[in-house]
């Protein structure tokens, strides 16, 4: 009860805050305190966005394709490796530390190498996203598998369940919460990863568009694309959240009881 009253209020407050910030920004620009070419006003950014819409749309499609391909492949490899590492203890011991180390390597440092190896097409972008998505998914799933209750596994074993059945009825569903929190991070990574690698070399995509407008000192277009990128990331995270709610309806009823 309390919760359902709170949520719209919270949204309302943050909407007001954003609105106030925009008004402040607009008035600072209008007052002439900051030169227009350095900081374009929100209205100018909006205008740039509308003017550039067809071009932005084409580039967005490219970036989204890369992100989707990377996310899908990253999830797939993450899932397979988590299952393998959970099933075979030796693989877990051998590769878990390695997994951590891969995450300490900065993506920006690897991206140019990937361009050298895979060229200027989509491949290096997808590979970079796979590398950054793979980790949160694998670690999330592994922790999730391990969090499944030993007693519940015993119960299923006492019923004569096979390994596959134990995985299906106990291990996988108990890993869902961790999988989704991994996915939320991964979806944000995927867009950022795509943009960064486009930035470092490529022919199309929002990252390439960004470098072009930067060289032209078109800061209004620059801001437009920045906002577009964060909007896309938010949208993706929202999608993951939606899927999470659909996949775990029991969590919603939990909340009702608690509130």
């Amino acid at each position: 009860m309390k919760k359902s009253l709170n949520t719209p209020n919270k949204n309302f407050a943050s909407c007001i805050a954003v609105l106030l910030l925009l008004v402040l920004w607009q008035s600072v620009c209008a007052s002439g305190l900051i030169p227009e070419f350095l900081l374009p006003s929100p209205l100018e950014i909006l205008k740039a966005f509308c003017d550039e819409l067809p071009l932005l749309w084409d580039n967005t499609l490219i970036t989204l394709t890369e992100a989707a391909a990377g996310l899908f492949l990253g999830m797939l490899t993450g899932f397979v490796s988590a299952v393998l590492m959970d099933t075979f203890g030796i693989l877990y011991k051998a590769f878990y530390p390695l997994l951590i180390i891969t995450q300490t390597i900065p993506t920006v440092a690897v991206a140019p190498l990937l361009v050298l190896w895979f060229g200027y097409g989509m491949a290096p972008k997808v590979v970079l996203i796979v590398i950054s998505v793979f980790f949160p998914v694998t670690v999330g799933l592994l922790d999730g598998f391990r969090s499944s209750q030993k007693d519940a596994v015993d119960l299923l074993r006492s019923m004569g369940a096979t390994r596959v059945q134990i995985f299906r009825y106990i291990k996988f569903p108990s890993a869902l919460p961790q999988l989704f929190s991994g996915l939320k991070i991964a979806s944000a990574y995927s867009i950022v990863g795509a943009v960064i690698s486009e930035w470092l070399g490529g022919f199309s995509g929002l990252g390439v568009y960004m470098t072009r407008v930067k060289k032209a000192f078109a800061f209004d277009k620059m801001f437009a694309v920045i906002f577009l990128i964060s909007a896309i990331s938010l949208l993706l995270m929202g999608l993951v959240k939606f899927a999470e709610k659909r996949c775990m309806p029991y969590r919603n009823t939990d909340g009702k009881k608690g509130g």
Partner: peptide
């Protein structure tokens, strides 16, 4: 049939 100490009802079913 074996019923273990906790009820072990799976929360997601």
């Amino acid at each position: 049939s074996y019923m273990l100490q906790k009820d072990l009802l799976l929360p997601y079913r």
